[in-house]
Design a binder for these strands. Structure first.
Lengths: 147, 147
DNA sequence: CAAAATTAAATTGCACACAATTGAATTTTA
DNA sequence: TAAAATTCAATTGTGTGCAATTTAATTTTG
């Protein structure tokens, strides 16, 4: 049952998997973001959605999806929730009724001010140097290569 | 609305967030694992659970949880599913009835042979050098530092 | 131009994650 | 040792992700 040394099953050791450290680290980061995002009243997914809207103003669901790599099955309920909170408005595009345009409300844009505190607080609870963070991002971006 | 150059809101650009590349890459890796794990009839979470059982034999739910950073709310339904598939057995520990011991069945252990193909197939669809993969794991492990 | 193909969002169903609570078993402590 | 505190798994409820399907709108094509 054990695999000390160079066992036949070494490739299946949890520590040798590509998926596990990445997935676990990703959830750990999300756990650290949570209390900070709680202060904004946003979940993680709601937060990255607002980041897109703060950057670009009015965008279609499709554009949000291709930016965040999320499909309408995920985004539709998230956007309905943000609408409930009064942070965004959902309106059909006039020139193409298939598209649903999402715009931040004044209240949604106001939240951006409060959100300015977030990045600083994150750095305080993730112990990576700026160089490590850059290396990490560089390697991670390579994963998206051959899509 | 736009933030060209050194805007006041640069820290909120999606590209400057710690969480996003990590989370997106993690989901991308899971997407690449999926067709490979489909051949085993396992989901990702079921797969990493089986990895623990293949390595250690009989373990408690608690031990699986602390290894994978998952709680009973997540594990209970996963383990019931694996039991349904005939891959594991769930039995209360005799010396401490609070603990639920999980053991792979013969069928569960047999699946390990088929699983040996997985790591090779993963390398074929994630375009990182061995060195990059090691650097990645090293940086990711730092994230778990001050828990 | 009309039928066929494509596109976008919504819906449905399944599988996690995780916080919070519950209930049973065990350990600690007064 | 009996009450209090702790531990463990299960349960409940919310919020994603994502595949597959549906419906409506638009574009392509014969």
């Amino acid at each position: 049952m054990s695999d000390c040394g160079g066992g036949r099953y070494d490739s299946l050791l949890l520590s040798n998997q590509m998926c596990f450290p990445l997935y676990a680290a990703s959830r750990e980061i999300l756990r650290r973001y949570k209390p900070i995002l709680d202060e904004l009243g946003l979940t993680y997914t709601q937060y990255i959605t607002m980041l897109v809207l703060w950057e670009r103003g009015t965008v279609s669901v499709r554009e949000i999806g291709s930016t965040l790599y999320l499909d309408s099955g995920t985004l539709t309920p998230v956007l309905k929730k943000l609408e409930q909170k009064g942070l965004i408005v959902r309106r059909r595009d006039e020139s193409d009724e298939r598209l649903l345009d999402i715009s931040p409300t004044d209240e949604g844009m106001a939240l951006r001010e409060k959100a300015l505190e977030v990045p600083g607080k994150i750095c305080g609870c993730v112990d990576l140097t700026k160089e490590e963070a850059e290396t990490l991002c560089k390697i991670l971006s390579k994963i998206f290569g051959e899509r």
